[in-house]
Design a protein around this nucleic acid. Structure first.
Lengths: 110, 110
DNA sequence: TTTACATATTGCAATATTACGATTAATAAA
DNA sequence: TTTATTAATCGTAATATTGCAATATGTAAA
C-alpha cells in the first residue's frame, strides 16, 4: 500500500535503506558531488549548474539536511551548504560494511 | 511531476542513483543479507524469514535481478537465488568511490 | 492425469516521490 | 523605506513505489 513496513526490519536495515535512498536520486548524487568538489561551500549555484528549478533543488537539499549528510549556514542572503563530515563518515562506515559482506565464502550455486 | 529527469545527469550519476535506490528499501537490504548469510542460495524461505507476502518478496527479487545484483536458477519447483558476484563487485567499486570522495581537503566553512 | 507445491504475474489501493509555479521570508543594497 | 536578491515553503499535478489478494504458471509426486 505504498508504505514501507519498517517495524519488521532491524534498526540497522532501516538505516542502511534510508541512507541509500538519499543517494538514490541523480540530483542528490550531483548535489553531493558538487559540494565535495567546491571545497568551499556552494549555495544556489546548484540551480544553475544542475538545471533543475530552485524549489526542486531546495527540496533535495532539505532531504539531505534532514538526514544529516549536509549542513547549512546563513551567509547574508545566501545559504552555504557543506558536508557534515562526522555523519558522512558514519554513513560511509555503515554502507561499506554492507557492501563488503564476504563473497569469497559463498559457493556459486547458480 | 514524479518523473526523474535522468537526461540532465551523467551516466555515472544515474548509475550510482540506480544502485543506491535498489538498496534503498529495508526489505531488499534484508533479502541481500539473507542471501549472503545463507552461503548456499535461498528461495522462498525469505517469505517466512522476512514476513512479507510472497508476491511482495517476489517483486523485490525481480527488481534486484533486473539490476543484475542477484541471479536465479530453477531447481525443481523452487528457484535458487544468489549474488551475482561480478555485478556486485562492480556496484561496490562505484559506490565506494562515491562514498570516499576526499573530505580532508574540504575546509569546514559552515 | 491429478494433486500439491513454489514462484511469477496481474490488478488494484494506499502512499511516496519528483518537479515546478506562485508565494513568502529574510537579508542587503540603494 | 523601497527594491533587489536568495532561498524556503505551499500547493498541486504527474508519476513511482509498496504491498497484497487473486490468479496463473511450471514442476514434482502420487
Amino acid at each position: 500500500m505504498g508504505v514501507t513496513k519498517t517495524n519488521i526490519f532491524t534498526k540497522q536495515q532501516n538505516e542502511i535503506a534510508l541512507f541509500a535512498k538519499a543517494i538514490g536520486h541523480p540530483a542528490r548524487v550531483s548535489i553531493l558531488q558538487h559540494i565535495f568538489k567546491a571545497n568551499a561551500c556552494i549555495c544556489g549555484d546548484l540551480v544553475t549548474e544542475i538545471g533543475l528549478a530552485q524549489p526542486t533543488i531546495s527540496q533535495h537539499l532539505k532531504e539531505l539536511k534532514q538526514l544529516g549528510l549536509i549542513k547549512g549556514t546563513i551567509e547574508g542572503t545566501r545559504i552555504c551548504y557543506c558536508i557534515h563530515k562526522e555523519n558522512w563518515a558514519a554513513m560511509k562506515t555503515m554502507m561499506t560494511e554492507f557492501l563488503n559482506q564476504d563473497l569469497s565464502q559463498n559457493q556459486d550455486c547458480c
